[in-house]
Every structure is written in C-alpha cells, then in structure tokens.
Design a protein around this nucleic acid. Structure first.
Lengths: 219, 219
DNA sequence: ATAATATTTTATCAATTGGTCAAATTTTTG
DNA sequence: CAAAAATTTGACCAATTGATAAAATATTAT
C-alpha cells in the first residue's frame, strides 16, 4: 500500500516515527539539494537534477518530499540556526574588541566550512528572499537590533570607535560571506599554485587587522 | 522576407547598419532582461518573462536576440566596463589614502545606481561564473594584480598600514556590493520609516571611517 | 505608388518540468 | 514464514520552455 499521501502530508510514518531508511534518504536528498540549489537558485534547479545528484529516481525522491518547495524549505530551516548562532553568541559582558574579533572569526569559519549553505542563503536573498522574508523581518531583525544595542553600549562607554553598529554588522557579514559566495572569483584572482583553503588564513589575518584598527577607540 | 537568420547571426541588417527600431527594441529588451536575470539568475529566467517585461511577444523578442544566451551575453559584456572602470581609475600617482577612499565611494555609488547590474553579476558568480570565468581569470585578474602592486608599493613606502592588497580589494568589493546584492536584507534590518536610499549615506560614512582607520599607517 | 525590406504575429514543435498513479519490490512485524 | 507496511519503479500527464516557420503587417527606399 502506497503511503506517500499519509507520509508526505505530515512527514511521519503510520506509527508516528521516522524509519532509519527515511532518516537516511531524507538526509541524502537534502545534501544533494543543497548542492543543486546553492549552484542554481530555487527556480534554476530541477527535481531531476536533485534526484540525479542523490542517486535516486524522481518519483522516489518525491516520496520523501512531496514538492520541490518542501525540500528548499527544509534546507532553509536547518540553515537558520547555523546562520544566527554566531551572532547570538556575542556576549554583552565580554571584552568588546575580543567579542567582535571572535564573531568575525566564527563567521569566516562558517564560510569555509559551509560554503554551500552560504550560497543557498545568498541566492535566496538575491532573488528577493521570497521564502524567508518573514524570518528576516522578524527573528533576524530582532536579534540584530538587540546586538546593535550591545555594540552601541560599548561605543558609548568609549570601548569602541563610535560608528553605526548596523553597518558594522553588514560589513562583517559582507566581508566574511564573500569568501563563500564569490569563491570562484576569489580563487581565480588569487590563483596561486597550491590553493586548498589557504586563502582563508590570509583573509582571517587581513580582517582581524582591518577591524581591530578600524574599531580601536581613539585615545 | 524574414531576415531573422541574416540578422540574428551577425547582428546586422543587410546594409550593415542597425535601424532605429532595432536600436530601440534591443535596448528595451536588454532593460527588461536585466531586471529578470538579476532577480532569478540565468537558468531561473524565462524568455516569456523577459518578453512580458519588455511588452512584446516571445517570437518578436527572438527576432532581435536569436537565443536566450545571447541576451545574457550582451548584458554581461556591457556590464564589464561599469565593473572594471572604478578599479582602473585608481591612480598610482595619487595620494594613497585618497585614492582608496575615492574607490570605495565610486563602488558604493555603483551599488546605489546600478543595483540590478550588481545582482546580475552576483548571480553569475554565485552560479560558478560559467559564462564569464575567462574574463575573470584574464582581464580582471590582470587588472587586480596590477592594482595590487600599486597598493603594495604604497605600503612599502609606509603610506598605508601593510596588509594583503588582494584581501583589501575583496573587502571593498564585498562591503560595497553588499548594499546592492543583499538590498532586501539591508532594508528589512534597517526598516526605518522613510527609507529611500538613505542608508547609502550611512554606509558611506561607516565605510570611510572603517577603511581610513584600518589603513592609516602607524606612526 | 510600389517594390523591397524589415518587423510582428500566429501557430506550432520537441524537450523539459513538476508532479501523479498504480503496480512491483523490499523491508518490517507478528 | 506470512502478512502488513514501507519503499521503489516505470509509465504517464499537463504545463512550461526555448525555439522555428510562415504568413501578415508595417516601414523604407526608389
């Protein structure tokens, strides 16, 4: 008996549990979909491509995710934690300079370790964020405003060179995510002989230098 | 007699000239295509969408550009000048700090005045730059290496805080283009009442501050 | 004006796309 | 082992997509 309807609609088996196969195959599909969506955006990606990349037939894939949209949604959801965690981790009680440097470092590590996730996010934003705009306007904005206040407090206390905290966060996002999103260009321009992820070290050094000098309070 | 073959293959009319109608319609199409490609990437955009946006029928559009690829190619080509000019304008004989500040300002103005072009470029890079990788590895890399040398010279002369010039350029590209490419997110996060392009002023102030302090030589 | 040329429309195509269905197969459970 | 449930497959479908052909219309040159 095909259970795809029951299964697909609530994402559960009859007994209310996910089988081992389901867990594994869903994971397989999400991995393949991440690759494809990151490279072509939502509209530019096809279910066939994802099924191919996952090594399964299209109807089989659709047994696990009833619609293309659902796969994308799943990816975005699990991406969000990865995306917001580093910002959440900024500690209002820590040393201002150290906190911001640590944040930059963490964001850069995410670009290095999860470049496809970064490109998935970038694609979504570039295309007008149709599927995550509410999260951006809600959860993200709230969190950003909160941390911007923390940073503003540090500046008011003379512990950081005063500047707009929102733009500071933008510039940290931009510079760090650039290494994942514009990876092709970065590699082409640097084009050293052996180029694994070596440029990430150079980037870390450069960014620490830039932001440390740029944010150090005037004495 | 339908001249689409002759016309489409070499982009010229029989008499070797472009008619007024051809000039105007091509322009109309490119404008519409820029909008669509910037929003959905190459694969995510359809000829129908572009034709709709240009207010003409699909076959009529295909009379001016025989293939979807050709429209995209045309856009990319005319984009390249806009993209490389500001970098070319960096003057080795100018004042280092002033030159870099001016470069940042110009790049930010381009994000403000040509956001769709920026997103078109970002989409192309994100998707692996399949259609412009040779330009990146060739013309762009050559130019970047040349200007990186100029900047290195300034650092060696003690006129700039020493750091990797390539990463410096990356960080300028990233921070300025961010305001075009991630526009939706920027607006959502800032979300002030009246928000035309006001945030570009804030961005200019912030970036000048950041890079000026970050690059000023230690005395 | 009229012939030549350029532009636009209508109709159409084959391929691709997101998605469905029922049958076949495999896995799990009793 | 057998029955039940879960998974996989192959055959389809309607809509969309990139593109073409030919007829109809408009423009330009003589």
């Amino acid at each position: 008996m095909p259970l795809s309807k029951t299964h697909s609609k609530n994402g559960r088996t009859n007994k209310g549990r996910e089988s081992r196969i389901q867990r594994e195959k869903r994971e397989l599909i999400l991995g393949a979909a991440l690759e494809v969506f990151a490279a072509h955006g939502f509209r530019g990606s096809t279910i066939d491509q994802i099924a191919d990349a996952a090594g399964m037939s299209k109807p089989n894939l659709l047994y696990y995710f009833a619609r293309k949209e659902d796969i994308h949604q799943s990816l975005i959801e699990r991406l969000m934690d990865t995306w917001l965690d580093p910002l959440k981790a900024i500690d209002a009680n820590g040393d201002p300079m150290a906190e911001i440097c640590a944040y930059i470092k963490r964001k850069l590590e995410i670009s290095r370790d999860f470049p496809k996730e970064s490109r998935l996010f970038a694609n979504e934003i570039l295309q007008g964020a149709p599927r995550i705009i509410s999260m951006i306007e809600g959860e993200l904005k709230t969190l950003v405003d909160e941390k911007a206040n923390v940073i503003q407090g540090w500046m008011d206390a003379g512990k950081l060179n005063p500047c707009d905290p929102h733009h500071l966060l933008f510039s940290i996002w931009a510079t760090t995510q650039h290494y994942a999103d514009f990876d092709v260009q970065v590699r082409a321009v640097l084009a050293r002989d052996a180029q694994g992820d070596t440029h990430f070290e150079g980037a870390a050094t450069f960014l620490e230098n830039l932001f440390c000098k740029g944010l150090a309070p005037r004495n």
